[in-house]
Design a protein around this nucleic acid. Sequence first.
DNA 1: GATAGGATCTCCAGCCACTAGAGGTTCAAG
DNA 2: CTTGAACCTCTAGTGGCTGGAGATCCTATC
Lengths: 151, 151
Amino acid sequence: MLSIGKLSAATGVKVPTIRYYEEVGLLPEAERSAGNQRLYRAEHQERLAFIRHSRELGFPLDDIRELLSLSDRLEISCAAADVIANRQLSAVKDRIARLQALQQELERMLTQCAKGTISDCKVIEVLGNHENCLHDHHREGCHLGYPAHDS
Amino acid sequence: MLSIGKLSAATGVKVPTIRYYEEVGLLPEAERSAGNQRLYRAEHQERLAFIRHSRELGFPLDDIRELLSLSDRLEISCAAADVIANRQLSAVKDRIARLQALQQELERMLTQCAKGTISDCKVIEVLGNHENCLHDHHREGCHLGYPAHDS
DNA sequence: GATAGGATCTCCAGCCACTAGAGGTTCAAG
DNA sequence: CTTGAACCTCTAGTGGCTGGAGATCCTATC
Ligand SMILES: [Zn+2]
Ligand SMILES: [Zn+2]
Ligand SMILES: [Zn+2]
Ligand SMILES: [Zn+2]
């Protein structure tokens, strides 16, 4: 029986995150000690490791919920699980492609910039006018400039 | 003088988003009609186009705020702008690298899966156990499985 | 000039997946 | 038995929007 702190140390998932997973129904509710503190056992730890690894591979929580419920039914076909993973793979590929277009555009404006004044700066010029771009990058999406909630 | 709807149509930025940009100080407050409706002119349209294009290239709003204020000072050196763009480029490259690792891992588990039952599924197995992975992908970050607020 | 219906206004809630903090209780070591 | 770390619940904030309610305004047609 692990306290939430031990479970956190064992899996690398932060304590508030574990509580959050319980709140949204990804982790079953833990037993409680006499003083109302959560107590976990090996099953919980495995499940949490599954969640964490899936998150590291970029799966959204809804998909993980489904993968978890599939993983409990050993005898059924794994087609549904493979569909989810394939969908995730497509999303990743798609995102890579968009990002590579951004990379090219950013590199282009940086190499073309003469490092003079703002009025001559290619960076500022290109940002102000998409006509100067090679790509279509309509709406790449957010969460690029900052690693978001990474550790 | 454009209404917010015309400005939206002209730039491809949604109406609530324009109001949001004003709220967070990216767009200067618009003049108002007798009936309190926003009125924009060419300056606003240019500024909004700059914001939108910067967003398409993935810059976070805080960086865009700084780029905008730099772009108003034509005589100064563009070094600061280039620093921001370079930082963005690094972020994009970094993100690509992480995503490529994810892609490999996802492809590996999908090709290894025998398409049988859950108990034999490589997808489920690998998700449950990072030992089977080649990569370190500790905390890639979120927002992969869904295109977020893209149109 | 009345009226219909679109566009606009403000304000508030929600999205995802956490993260941080306040203010209080419980537990384990010394 | 005391200390202080770890735990509890609850709330609010992050980024960058998006959507809705309910009220007001603007324009076009009759
Ligand atoms: Zn420059
Ligand atoms: Zn462009
Ligand atoms: Zn499978
Ligand atoms: Zn792994």
